[in-house]
Design a protein around this nucleic acid. Sequence first.
RNA 1: UGCCUCAUGGUGUAACGGUAGCACAGCAGAUUCUGAAUCUGCUUGUCUAGGUUCAAAUCCUAGUGAGGCAACCA
Length: 564
Amino acid sequence: MSDAPVSAPKDFIRELIAADVAAQRNGGWVITRFPPEPNGYLHLGHAKSICLNFGLALENAPHARCHLRFDDTNPTKEETEYVESIKADVHWLGFSWGNHLYFASDYFEKLYGFAVQLIANGFAYVDDQTLEEVRANRGTLTAPGVSSPFRDRSPAENLDLFARMRAGEFAEGAKILRAKIDMASPNMNLRDPVIYRILKAHHHRTGDAWCIYPMYDYAHPLSDALEEITHSLCTLEFEHHRPLYDWLIDHVVGLPAKPYQREFARLNLTYTVLSKRKLLQLVKEGLVAGWDDPRMPTISGIRRRGYTPAAVRAFCETVGLTKFPSVSELALLEHCVREDLNKNALRVYGVLRPLKVVLTNYPENQVEEVELVNNPEDPSAGTRKVPLSRELYIDAEDFMENPVADFFRLVPGGEVRLKYAFCIICQEVVRDASGGIVELRCTYDDATRRGAKPVGRPKVKGTIHWVSAAQALDVEVRMYDKLFSVAQPEEAAGEHGNFTDYLNPNALEVLTAKLEPSVATAGPGVHYQFERVGYFFTDPKDSKLGKPIFNRTVALKDSFPKVK
RNA sequence: UGCCUCAUGGUGUAACGGUAGCACAGCAGAUUCUGAAUCUGCUUGUCUAGGUUCAAAUCCUAGUGAGGCAACCA
């Protein structure tokens, strides 16, 4: 009996697991697995599964662990390159599989043995029907299937045929091994599912050792059992595979464990797509710059954009886990990113669209140093010195010649504060021949330093950032925005349309910004907040030492309604 | 015209027969040397119809809607 407060499980799966632990099922152990097929890059949808499976292991320590298992049963699609990227992505998210790294291909021999056992016990048979015949005889959603003429072959004949399949005597497609279950089942997965097929393909790990390969439905439950997985968690589309999962666990003799499968809804996110096929299409058609394009919802993409592992984990936790196919808002993810970065990112001044300001009453050749706070959320981050002189840049957005209502930045004749410097008053707007504004001539008030309020003039409502012109760095800034311009591109496209029609043409804008000189030494992969603008990340791939390139991770929230 | 699963504010979730709560978004206000952050307040919800019960988001029945299922993919 414990008087410790009972922390309520957060979702139906954790509830189930807590009950299993309480009942000492599996000796109170919780062993989960994350089982990607190494045929592509991981995305945010996978992150949800990773956070669940590895999170469960952490929550139930010390009697818990999570395996990383590559489900590499289809050699025609899998590559070592993907194995490496998947490992890197899981690590980046902050999880570790310890020494529990597995490959389904490591079990090929055992899996073959189990198949022999099933055949010997009359639970599987070799079928000579063609692919088309198998398909036709499976029946439809409303009509039962028709038994194969080869369904009643003797175990002895099946054993011989299966051995010869392995030996490579038959051509691809000539024969398959099927589980003998129920051709009339309302569940199509139980109509004698194929469990082995002939594939004369080179496997990324087993090479040419095999020419028959197990199907997912067969390999998965048995791999789970071999690893003594207790809870096999997957997405909803595998719900109908559960009876087959259970059938195999029940019919194969000698398994070291009896795992069970539960299903949860996959992640959907607004303004993006989360399907390997569609992401692949974007890459192949050159609509993005690659799998790690910062616009992509891939783990490698968001990492490069500057999203943080902590933010992704927090997001996965708040979306929760249910069986309802919900669509989460990008805004929630962005909130999680800002929340993390606000606490940790160093502040820096950056002017995206420079507008020159000349302080007419500031000494011609003087350069002073102003002390700026590195992170108001974290005093230990200290301060830095930034130069200030007669010629400055401010953001063009911070000046309006004909201001809209409630605009409280710089206007002709108006006054704003240059943050941590002093207040300036706009005296004159200088134009070029075509009427474009090229420069603002302003005066500054020395008495307004250190936050002192102007005397004898109205209260200054605006505070803006700035950089000293002579010392400013010209830096490439990649302004990333949402990938699609509609919340649900797949739905917008409907059955016949093309989701790529809804790509956001403004998802990337490249600018040359003026940044304070302190960022000259910024290495690749560092987070910053450009004050009043947004969070930025030095591109880990294209940044050179001394020549950083910044990716906009996410803009700051902006409650000023912009008129564009 | 089959089977399986699901249905709580705009969005995501909690409530396990007994006060519909939280977060995001939105809207106000306070505060602010970031129109950020922070703080306060507000708006908005149990798919429908029956039933069981003193009492239903919760249990039952039917309907409606959504997702999934007919690869030798995973």
